[in-house]
Design a protein around this nucleic acid. Sequence first.
DNA 1: GCAAGAATAGAACATACATTCCAGATTTGT
DNA 2: ACAAATCTGGAATGTATGTTCTATTCTTGC
Lengths: 287, 287
Amino acid sequence: MAETENNIAIPQDFDSLKTIILERKAQLPKRLRQVAAYALDNPDEIAFGTAASIATSADVQPSTLVRFAQHFGFEGFSSLQQIFRARLRERTPGYDERLKALSGNDHSKLESGSIFNGFVAAAHRSLDNIASSVEPEAFERAVNILAGAETIYLVAKRRSYPISGYMAYAFGKLKVKYQMVGTAAGIDDDILAMAGPQDAAFAVSFSPYASESVNQAKLLANRKVPVVSLTDSAFSPLAESSKVWFELVEADHAGFRSLSASMAFAMALTVAIAEKRRRVSEDHLIE
Amino acid sequence: MAETENNIAIPQDFDSLKTIILERKAQLPKRLRQVAAYALDNPDEIAFGTAASIATSADVQPSTLVRFAQHFGFEGFSSLQQIFRARLRERTPGYDERLKALSGNDHSKLESGSIFNGFVAAAHRSLDNIASSVEPEAFERAVNILAGAETIYLVAKRRSYPISGYMAYAFGKLKVKYQMVGTAAGIDDDILAMAGPQDAAFAVSFSPYASESVNQAKLLANRKVPVVSLTDSAFSPLAESSKVWFELVEADHAGFRSLSASMAFAMALTVAIAEKRRRVSEDHLIE
DNA sequence: GCAAGAATAGAACATACATTCCAGATTTGT
DNA sequence: ACAAATCTGGAATGTATGTTCTATTCTTGC
């Protein structure tokens, strides 16, 4: 009898099922892998279809579906199907739908609620936008520059400051040497004077551009420190001082621009830098 | 033969079906009205259940379900069920597709690109999550507390610090009096000593909880300062000191938790507070 | 209060369904 | 290259399911 993986718990929710399928997908036999791919691509079909109809459109035999389910510890196809159905059932209504539900009774509730809603939506839009506007090659170049630096100088003011604040925190955790520029007033020039070509800088500035940040980036560039920057326009004064720069237009709600995409970008950059360093030092050991 | 209402078009989507059911509900025979009520209250059950199981939980005979469907022009129960299923299908939040589009682009070719991808996806997930976990009522209460405060104290350390950093920036722009707690070491206690019941505090802390933040929140609560907090677990030590607290679990990529949802939340809260103050002062002028 | 008509419950039916089974094909290990 | 094990396709099977049918109960109009 085929092993039903008794030792491993049967997934009870869609997310863990998905994870397990992805984990084991590679080692699955041909037809079962075919089912795995189909299932993850067409979860709705699995939820609503019959074994026969699903089998047809996945181009396998119904029995294969049963075997697939049993491979993951389910009794049969039907019990696996329950997971796919539960996914649709349990999908929580989402904020705006609940907001609609309580409409009428209190106007102020609606107002605060729609503000919340608006910011979440703006954040989503921003993320969609960044996903399509950041060039992988540019990102890779930025990572290379910063990963190769001795010290990473972080330049950001005002609205951008939380971004560099997060990066400082994460760099600290990841043991990446960094230096924030512009925390205490007055000593910035002294700090910048220590930077050299062996270092690198990451500058963030959105319009209206803080002149301080722009000047500091310029200064760094003059000192042959490679600068990577994140800004919101190709005409940003930051761009001309930068080896690599990213144009990131955050969506806004009621005039307040989101920071979610910048934050995601910063996190990705931070971790990618640390990851690259780790890999480089490993490669070095092997050689 | 019973009339099948040939003259009226058979509803093809859930909304029109719902409308028609509501219209005719009053003139329906007893058992059919019972089914109508059940169907509108438990659409998910209709979508996934079998005629027998639905009949049992609606306390009617399976045949009644068939007759119900036929009354509205459907051939049988199954065709009516399709409408309920289509409803769940269509509600699919175009979001899966966006993620697919993400993994489809050439980002994933490069390692750094996949890190980038991962963080964008995590941010999306976080936002979805926050949208379904924040209760509009709780949000409104939080806004009221903070909008009514004389000074808003911002408590956050480490990973949460960028959140309060952004709020400080925005409050400054919006002319809302605030005070950050925990920037310069040592003077925290002096700052907190000034807080009173006429003020309020907003604390952010995720596990592992910074003991400093927890203590400060406790201190504020003892001084009768209402505390609103953002944390990631119902068991967070922050929760007990808080009048209102929000549980926000950020999705993570490679163990690094996103901040995008927290950021969106903070922005929404900030703006909602300012908006409420503006409206209150306007109302005051009118009176 | 009685008859005519509609509505309902529950059993009977036909079929659509998931599952099992087995022979043949394919992969894996030696 | 051979044997063993695994995987796969397709038909067989028995159950679960939607639907139909009919006797009975409940409304409705006079």
